[in-house]
């Protein structure tokens, strides 16, 4: 941590979420008034960017859809470029409750912790995912727990808070479609200390999920390949850019 009061960025990923994004931004601002709220508009075709601005967020609009990984990385690059100490990721559909951000930040407080993942399954009577998704999450939990040598209960959670060194690492690695699992593997291999903390999870406020049945199959195959690459890959090289330079 570089100062007594860390600068916090809450970045929200949004793709065609004009009906939900305003409410999500306002809830984040209420829950975390000291943070800057950034909406990464991932090539939306609707008025997501305008709705976010009207709700008081700063907006980075990608000219076309990069997917969750590319959009998330944009938030991380922004956090590094603007000198934030901590960045919290939320989704524009309202699934990750802003009121739970403090749980992530509390868990991130110890100096040895680099990143905290909000787990839907650690809380008593936690989130009940649909059957097939539950099997998939369990499958990846077992694999990731073995690779990371710690218990991983929610490998697909995108509700994360990370300090600058972990953000710098995430900004360097090339993970595009589905970043959560591959990021955990990469961080673990690079020696970062990542922990989970229990959070509750809401239903989507509006819009539709980006993952349908066909994409689910693609997801499993692609993420498995990503895990293999993450395990065998050499450490990533620094980016020659003011945005991606090492801290």
């Amino acid at each position: 941590m570089q100062s007594q009061t860390p600068r916090i960025l809450a970045y929200i990923l949004a793709h065609n979420e004009e009906s939900a994004i305003g409410q999500v931004v306002q809830r984040v601002r209420q829950a975390l008034p000291e943070a800057t709220v950034l909406v990464v508009d991932d090539g939306s075709m609707d008025n997501t960017a305008r709705a976010a601005r009207e709700a008081g967020a700063q907006v980075v609009s990608l000219p076309f859809n990069l997917g969750i990984g590319g959009a998330s990385q944009t938030g991380q690059i922004y956090a590094i470029a603007q000198g934030y100490d901590i960045a919290v990721r939320l989704d524009g559909d309202g699934q990750y409750p802003p009121a739970e951000i403090h749980r992530l930040l509390d868990a991130l407080a110890p100096a040895e912790v680099d990143m905290v993942v909000g787990s839907r399954f650690l809380a008593p009577g936690g989130y009940k995912a649909p059957f097939l998704r539950r099997i998939g999450i369990r499958f990846f939990s077992i694999i990731l727990s073995a690779i990371c040598r710690r218990r991983v209960t929610d490998p697909t959670s995108g509700f994360i808070a990370a300090k600058r060194p972990a953000l710098t690492h995430l900004a360097r690695i090339a993970v595009f479609d589905f970043p959560e699992i591959e990021s955990l593997v990469s961080l673990s291999r690079a020696g970062f200390h990542v922990i989970e903390t229990p959070v509750s999870m809401a239903e989507r406020a509006a819009g539709t999920s980006s993952i349908n049945l066909l994409r689910s199959v693609y997801y499993v195959v692609k993420v498995l390949m990503g895990i293999v690459v993450g395990v065998i890959a050499k450490p990533c090289e620094p980016q020659r850019s003011r945005f991606g330079s090492p801290s």
Binding site: V60, L62, Q73, S241
Partner: peptide, 12 residues
């Protein structure tokens, strides 16, 4: 992808 990200941030 990197150019797109940096372009969007610079524009913002």
């Amino acid at each position: 992808v990197r150019l797109t990200q940096e372009l969007a941030i610079l524009k913002a």
